[in-house]
Write a protein that binds this DNA or RNA. Sequence first.
DNA 1: TCGCAGCGATACGTCAACGTATCACTGCTT
DNA 2: AAGCAGTGATACGTTGACGTATCGCTGCGA
Lengths: 200, 200
Amino acid sequence: MRRGEPRSEELDPRVARSLQTILHAALEELGDVGYGAFTIESVAARAGVGKSTIYRHWPSKLALIEGAFQTLHEQAAPDIVSGSPRERVERIVRHVAEVVAGKPFSSCIPALIDGAERNRDVRRFHHRFQREARKPLVAVIAMGVECGDFESHIDPELTAIALVGAIFYRRLMTNEPFRPGQAAELVATTFGVATRSRAR
Amino acid sequence: MRRGEPRSEELDPRVARSLQTILHAALEELGDVGYGAFTIESVAARAGVGKSTIYRHWPSKLALIEGAFQTLHEQAAPDIVSGSPRERVERIVRHVAEVVAGKPFSSCIPALIDGAERNRDVRRFHHRFQREARKPLVAVIAMGVECGDFESHIDPELTAIALVGAIFYRRLMTNEPFRPGQAAELVATTFGVATRSRAR
DNA sequence: TCGCAGCGATACGTCAACGTATCACTGCTT
DNA sequence: AAGCAGTGATACGTTGACGTATCGCTGCGA
């Protein structure tokens, strides 16, 4: 083996179990202590696993950290095909707010940001992850502009960033995290005007 | 002494010099290695100072970290009294973008976020700092709403957060940081319509 | 000009984590 | 049923940081 990624090939069940347990513990550890203070020994203790088992599967501490961040991928996608563009935007914004507020992602955001600042591979992963997550929102806004639901002069990418930026800002820079229930309010405030101007 | 805050009282010049040198080095170190990997010995080396000198002024590593973050305060404020509300908002947004992109604040943002997540005092400082920084923007937007320049239904606080949130989001979650020159574009996209609807 | 407070340097003991090695044991695969 | 690959435990040497202590040196204030 000697590769961090869990191979989907047939695998000794003991190995599969180890990998999953360790990655789960590593993600928790990252959320708890952050990127800089992350230690392999804590992960081993948390996972109830020997240090050697970790070193058997990942060549170094950094590789394990990267592996742990990879496990952040699994998230159900919201419905983005039904309803008006405005409704779809609200639904996506609510979904982002839920992910940002929920486990395991929420507690890892600071570690992810700090990790991205220190390590190039973490950074690449982090930025790509965010770009992918933003994509449906940008697409729906662009569609809304095209079909005249939103003002033609707005920039879909920039609007999307203002929306999700507000959610992350509240999580990271204030002690009043954004609640998913406020999604409609955020959309209304941020570019509700554009919708109203059509309804007039 | 034994207190981290630089007293404005009369002070042995050697002490004053030490404090300033050490705090400056500590801030650089935080920007470079982050909160979790911050070490006193590195700060001493970077400052060209004995370890003992640091321990003479701060009781522990954490106290020094807090002291270092305190030094982030100094920033010139933008002009917020002349021009239309719309112009003032643009000026403030541009100023925030400059601070977020400039030294020494920019490189400390990830460390600050991570530090805030791990330590209660850092968190309090961080949130208060952000709240203060947001205040003029919220006030100007509220004024614009009151005097009819902006749509009456927008929430000044939420709008302000969408604006600065976009700037921080670009800094932390993408590899295309927000450039101060895009301030007008951001304002136009986010609530340009509100201004236009009045001009109609 | 004198004396001392603050200085940088350095050494010290402690601890924790890194990454390696070894070793029975156990539960897969065949 | 056999045997081996993967396991947890444990010990090891190394490194680096914590925080303390001690030491001459120096530049500030009286």
